[in-house]
Amino acid sequence: MTDKQRVCVTVNGRRYERWVEPRLTLVDFLRHELHLGGTHVGCEHGICGLCTVLIDGRSGRSCLTLAVQVDGAEVTTIESLRDPSTGALHPIQQAFVDAHGLQCGFCTPGFIMTTVELLRENPDPSDEEIKRALDGNLCRCTGYQSILASVRLAARRLREGREA
């Protein structure tokens, strides 16, 4: 019974119902079934972290998850971060722009989604805590220093935003 299975999933607040092969990975499901192409593929074996999304609010690698495993779950991807009415960037996205936290930008959605979880759990992380949280995301362009600066900047702005 390798027949297709029904997947009912909420992605970025929107409910989808699809019939998929059990072997379909979540990242392929997001990209090719739902046409949410912002989640990128870097290695398909769980090392690079490019395909990081939030599953029920927690970061995970969508190449190491089957689409059928998110039946009933809520998935959040990079596409959800921008303000839907104004189009404004999320403070974390804006911080990556302002602190030059990207070059080719292919790994960036994964870093940003991981950062969303980090700053939700720890609004004022130390450099060591940032490094520990992001050590599962590979970047080949930046050497990470500007990413570190971006996360620090985002954390500061988010804290200030909350206080304001």
Binding site: G49, I55, G60, R61, E117, A133
Partner: peptide, 9 residues
């Protein structure tokens, strides 16, 4: 064990 995302899942 691994990385945050791996420990989550």
């Amino acid at each position: 064990v691994g990385h945050v995302g791996v420990r989550n899942r």
